[in-house]
Nucleic acid binder design. Structure first.
Lengths: 201, 201
DNA sequence: TGAAAACTGGACCCGTGCGTCCATTTATCT
DNA sequence: AGATAAATGGACGCACGGGTCCAGTTTTCA
């Protein structure tokens, strides 16, 4: 039921992207466009009307979603004690993984051979940007005399790595991490504690 | 030139695995077996004689190589001061990445949908095992009174993450990390220094 | 020299999935 | 009502690649 003459139906666009995310997460690059169309309740032609082909669809999907997935990570709230803030940040990192946010990353890795620019963009808008924000925070806290961080980007990389590395690989390998809320909390708290030991004034 | 009557030519087996590693690294799961055969200087049939099919070939390749790639990581030498030992360990982690050791990981990730057991095995024999060894070392140093590590596995995970996480993702995304020897050294040294700050007695 | 088994290379079948085409339908604007 | 344009769905051509088959060759052992 198009809403305008000669205007594309944008509700279908959403349905397509949702279905694409789903099928691509399940089957990877091998995901057939026909299956995406079927699940979106849309004809294959409709997909080709919007996107020239499969690679464009993937690009559109990833570019559109990376931001929204990593958005919650971007602003460590600067109210509480740094250890609290860091723990909260770590928790949000882990939640992204736990909630399946890594299927896009897996997809990007699979496509990296054919779509190197996409890989660059995902890296810049995902891990890189979120790390930059954390670095800013660390610098602020250092200025405020609550921490002692000489190389904020380096430190941010360390912290992100401490929290993520293992779960990251597990998620990419599709191994169920099976972290309970309590375990997430413990891990986040412990990472923040250790990090503060290393970077306290 | 087979060396035994009715015996498979093991030099060809090696050629097949080498070629498979090469082509699979380049083209991922989409790598055609014919291309592997071509580069191995072997007929397609010969490959099918040894391995039932593509998935078996991949399994054989990965299982056979994971060990040799991660072998250098397994034994942190316990002679020097822990900070030195940790830096050396970190360096060897980074070298594995730098030398392209992550193409097998990328391949395993791509295959994880169809070959979940392979994913489990790679994880267990790669990151997991090497982390276990590091944990043992940390425990030893703690007993010796040179460090203070309460949860060795957790600490090992932290250290590995600090060193690897970022480069790991870059490598998987095929982004050139372009680390010079000097940068590797700096990163390893810094990670060891920070880690020791957090876990010193 | 003959047997045994692997290797070759090329042909072959076949499933899958991309991308195209098109006649028909549906919906909206003038 | 008529024009306009998107949406449908089904058929189609086509390339690619997995896996099989086989007749002929090479190699080594007995």
């Amino acid at each position: 039921m198009p809403r305008l003459v000669g205007q594309i139906d944008s509700s279908k666009t959403e349905a397509i992207l949702d279905a694409a995310a789903e099928v691509l997460a399940e089957r990877g690059l091998a995901a057939p466009i026909e299956e995406i169309a079927r699940r979106a309740g849309v004809s294959k032609q409709t997909i080709y009307n919007r996107y020239g082909g499969k690679t464009e669809l993937i690009q559109a999907l990833v570019e559109k979603r990376v931001d929204s997935i990593t958005a919650p990570l971007r602003s460590p709230g600067a109210e509480e004690h740094p250890e609290e803030t860091l723990a909260a940040y770590a928790r949000s990192l882990l939640v992204v993984i736990e909630k399946g946010g890594y299927s896009l990353m897996r997809l990007t890795i699979q496509s990296a051979g054919e779509l190197p620019e996409l890989a660059r963009e995902v890296y810049a808008n995902g891990p890189m940007r979120s790390r930059g924000q954390l670095a800013e925070y660390l610098e602020l806290e250092t200025r405020a005399g609550r921490m002692k961080v000489e190389d904020p980007m380096q430190a941010a990389e360390f912290f992100g790595g401490m929290v993520m590395a293992n779960r990251q690989i597990q998620a990419l390998l599709r191994l169920p991490t099976g972290l309970t809320e309590a375990e997430i909390d413990r891990l986040a708290t412990e990472a923040a504690r250790i990090f503060m030991r290393a970077y306290s004034v």
